[in-house]
Amino acid sequence: MRQLISIRVVAVAIGLFFALSVLWALVRGIGPGFSNLAEYGQFTEPNVEQAFHKHPNHYDFSFDGPVGNWDVGQLQRGLKVYDEVCSACHSLKFVAFRDLAELGLTPGQIKAFAAKHQVPGVDKNTGEATTVPGLPTDYFPSPYPNEIAARAANNNAVPPDLSLMTKARHDGTNYVVSLLTGYQKQPAELLKRFPEAKTPPGLHYNPYFANLNIAMPPPLHTDGQVTFDDGAPSDIKSMAEDVAAFLTWTAEPKLVKRRQTGWPVVIFLIFATGLAYMSKQQVWAAVKPKKAA
């Protein structure tokens, strides 16, 4: 018993030590925190990102919601936008040409599409590294031979691979559209409040980009920049939506299959759980206290 009392005494001492230590840290932080609150109306000193960064806008897509499906025409248009615009700087390394079958391309079309692209290969006669026309089993080639080349060509900013882009950002599909259509002049209010945050030369102001200044110049700059064979509109917003849809597919090619598999699984489990509930009720009926009449 004496031992147990001393365990509790030690416990109280340790508890008070941690609690008082952390409260001391709290006391030291309260002053700066509340002086910020008095001055700026918030606990931290305002910074330009916090004040001017915008969350993505919402755009409607055919694959939204639990029963959404791909719009194959839109994915093909997005592929064309990627191929004619984005692929000049951005790789798509996790996507193979053969995957385009899911976009409704025939084997012949895939072969022709792959052959249009040069992929790294070996010269059959000399054994030297060279490029050869792509086959359906090849992956989309990178526009640069290595990271140093990518850096050198782009003002020291490496264009990221786009395969997973819509999963690698919060609200990724909407983010891509917002970013592509979000280029604008720096607001006068921003320059007034944060004169030191003027966009440096070589960068471009875009409020949807995390630090507001993006190295990529506006890639979609002219209505009709890409011509769609199906006659769909090719204004900047439509092209941005199409390529965002395409990049949603590249990031999660199994998206629609996943949900289509999910419905029967969940419905079956709800049914089975109902049966389990009824058998539980039946088993327990014998020992449940009878309700007072």
Partner: peptide, 16 residues
Amino acid sequence: MLSQIATAYYFLHFLV
């Protein structure tokens, strides 16, 4: 600050 208040109570709860 919120986590400091919560941390203080967390230790006080179990040990005091």
